[in-house]
């Protein structure tokens, strides 16, 4: 069964098309990642699904209920965490949680099992005001507040933003555990490496989906040879590699440059090393590598 069905959703702000005839669906109980850079349309889509804004065209259904016509019902079964920290800064952890529980007509005790894993970390500070928490703690509290009424569908808008890597990892572990309760989760993120943590992802760019599949399938769809290269002069390296005969694309990727060739070449590493030597590079390193989701994303934007 599909928990979320999006049909040709279009949303424009003036001349800017934030979402362009977007169509996809999320299965019940799935952890779905909506991945794309800033301005791709992630927040617009999440707000439409959260019944906060109305699409210009198209329709969306959550648990068989239309997000425009049936929004009052949906507001009972949705858990929504906006991109910006949106809890009461002057209330304590405990007060925030209790407030949101009673807003949904429930209590902390009723659904404690859902948030237990997360809340045990917050409990020592439960008297502390939300405004005084670290970024990671804020996100955990926000997640607790979005979960306290046992939503059927959870919508998370960039929960990893402003959070340190350790907390971010913990946060994703929690999302994985939530699947045990049968909650469908749609999470948006600009971090391509977080794609690996989802069951399925949609790569969003300028309001359109570039790809929609499992992370593994997306990675495997990369059909060109890829090499990671480094040398002493990284800045010059990228420009040189782009001009190399047979090169398809090259861009910086962490401490390496990722070079994609148009076609497989026998002994490609040697060819690349020789080419770089002829350009006076030193301390070079060339290694064949497997494409990640980010490589696929960049390749798709180049293809367009």
């Amino acid at each position: 069964m599909q928990a979320i069905e999006v049909q040709q959703i279009t949303k424009s702000y003036g001349d800017l098309k934030a979402l362009d005839e977007l169509t996809f669906s999320v299965a019940s109980g799935e952890l779905f990642g909506l991945i794309g850079p800033d301005g791709a349309g992630k927040t617009s889509l999440l707000r439409i699904l959260a019944t906060l804004i109305v699409p210009d065209k198209g329709s969306a259904r959550i648990q068989q209920h239309d997000v425009v016509g049936d929004y009052k019902y949906l507001r009972n079964i949705l858990g929504y965490m906006p991109g910006r920290f949106s809890l009461y800064q002057d209330l304590s952890i405990e007060e925030n949680l209790a407030f949101f529980a009673s807003v949904f007509g429930t209590s902390i005790a009723d659904n404690y099992h859902l948030i237990q894993d997360i809340y045990v970390q917050l409990e020592p500070f439960r008297k502390r005001r939300a405004g005084a928490l670290s970024g990671g703690m804020k996100q955990k509290l926000a997640l607790c507040c979005a979960l306290i009424h046992k939503p059927e569908v959870l919508l998370l808008d960039e929960p990893g933003t402003g959070v340190d890597p350790v907390s971010r990892k913990e946060f994703w572990d929690m999302l994985k555990r939530l699947k045990e309760w049968g909650i469908t989760i749609l999470v948006s993120t600009p971090n391509m490496d977080e794609a690996e943590l989802c069951d399925r992802v949609g790569l969003l760019h300028k309001g359109k989906l570039l790809a929609l599949d499992t992370p593994a399938n997306i990675r495997n769809s990369y059909d060109k040879p890829l090499y990671e290269v480094r040398s002493q002069d990284m800045y010059r390296l990228i420009g040189d590699l782009r001009q190399m005969p047979g090169a398809y694309s090259c861009y910086a990727f962490g401490e390496y440059a990722h070079l994609t060739l148009l076609h497989p070449i026998d002994g490609a590493e040697i060819t690349i090393l020789q080419y770089l030597e002829s350009r006076q590079h030193r301390d070079m390193e060339v290694r064949a590598t497997r494409a990640g989701v980010e490589d696929c994303f960049i390749a798709s934007t180049l293809d367009q």
Partner: peptide
């Protein structure tokens, strides 16, 4: 301004 209205709206209130 604080964004809390966004959360209140997506609730049965």
């Amino acid at each position: 301004e604080m964004g809390t209205m966004e959360v209140l709206l997506v609730s049965p209130l």
